[in-house]
Amino acid sequence: MTTDFQQSRQALGRRLRELRGPRTQRDLAAVLGWPQAKVSKLETGRQTAAAEDVMAWAQATGHPAATEELVARLQGLETRTRSWRRQLRAGHRPVQDVLTIEYEQSAVLRAWEGAMVVGMLQTADYARAMFTRYAELHQAPKDIDEAVRARVRRQQLLFEPGRQFHIVMWEAAMYADVAPPEVLAAQIDRLGTLIGLDTVTLGIVPFGARLSIPPANGFWLYDDRLAIVEDWHAELWIDDPDSVALYRRVWDTLDASAVYGTSVRRILARARARFADLV
């Protein structure tokens, strides 16, 4: 959880405590029908409130006029940190649709991924395996086929003139055994077809490359105006200029260790041979 996010959550908690006034946490919990522990966690910033929580809080404390303010504060939190628990209540398809809007509004996109093939370059079968694994992890509705179709449709942006995709991945992503061998082999073949496409630049940081920083979380940069970073519990949507600039430096640093063109083809061929032996 980011420091900025936690500080904002604590600030919201202090505001909730202020609205509670002289009554005890136990009294307010009784009015709301909540465990006292929930009131305590919200006030101390140890739990993120839902919109219905802050609306109920404003009513129960006798401050209905504060509802709009509290909801706005909460939306500010969600702008930075979008928990998977909340995003996936309706499945993966709505998440894909929201991301597509950001892609469509951007001309230059940069990605770093060390754990798997980035979504924009995934085959349908590979994407299906990813959505299935994450739906199981987060116990989310399994709208897998709709999510796959949404992701594949977005990939049409790869072929639109005037857009540039600069994608860097770690070689380890080629070997992540997250799908059947035939799916992984086909995925590697797909990557090979994208080399030389005038809208896509594909770099791979090879095993053994000298690294100036660890190959940590995957992220996307949208026109250097927005960074979207994936963590296990949430997506971080970061738009303050200093933080976006930091992610750009991270991308540039990892890109400096990447290889391109013929060297990428050799890496793909090695990975392809491994999975071909397993088919």
Rank of each mutant, 00 (worst) to 15 (best):
G261N: 14
Q6A: 14
D231M: 08
A209H: 06
Q187T: 01
S212C: 01
E68S: 07
F5H: 15
R151L: 06
A172V: 00
T123W: 04
D143K: 07
T44H: 10
A276F: 01
M120N: 03
V264T: 09
M1R: 14
S243D: 15
F219G: 05
D143T: 02
W112E: 09
G192K: 04
G33A: 07
L226F: 05
G162V: 13
D239K: 11
V108F: 08
V98L: 09
P161S: 03
W170A: 15
R20Y: 05
A65T: 11
A37I: 11
T61L: 04
L268C: 14
T262H: 10
W232F: 08
D177T: 00
H63M: 03
S8F: 06
E68I: 05
A276Y: 03
D242E: 15
V183R: 00
R110M: 13
M130C: 01
Y222I: 09
V71W: 12
A245R: 14
I238V: 15
A72E: 15
E171V: 01
M174Y: 05
P161N: 04
T132K: 00
V117T: 11
Q156G: 13
L158P: 09
L246F: 13
A276N: 12
L246N: 07
I267Y: 03
H233V: 04
Q164M: 12
N217V: 10
G119N: 03
L226M: 15
V71F: 06
D177I: 02
I238G: 04
L278W: 08
R210D: 08
L19P: 04
I144L: 08
S83Q: 05
R266W: 07
R272Y: 12
K38G: 06
A50G: 12
R110E: 14
R23H: 00
G218R: 05
L221E: 12
R270L: 07
L202S: 07
I213T: 09
D277H: 11
I101W: 10
I204P: 09
T132Q: 00
P94L: 14
D255I: 07
Y260E: 13
Q36P: 02
G261S: 13
D255A: 15
Q47A: 12
M169P: 06
T193G: 02
Q36G: 04
R73N: 02
V95Y: 11
R190G: 01
M169I: 15
R80D: 09
W112F: 06
I228A: 08
R151I: 07
R248G: 11
A245I: 02
D27W: 00
E230T: 08
A173L: 05
L202R: 11
S243A: 13
Y126G: 00
R270H: 06
G203K: 10
R210Q: 13
A72T: 10
T44D: 11
R9H: 07
V264E: 14
D255M: 14
L32P: 01
A276Q: 12
A209R: 06
K38P: 14
I238A: 05
F5W: 13
D53E: 14
A129K: 01
Q36N: 11
A147Y: 01
L109G: 03
T81S: 15
L32Q: 02
S8A: 12
A186T: 10
Y247S: 05
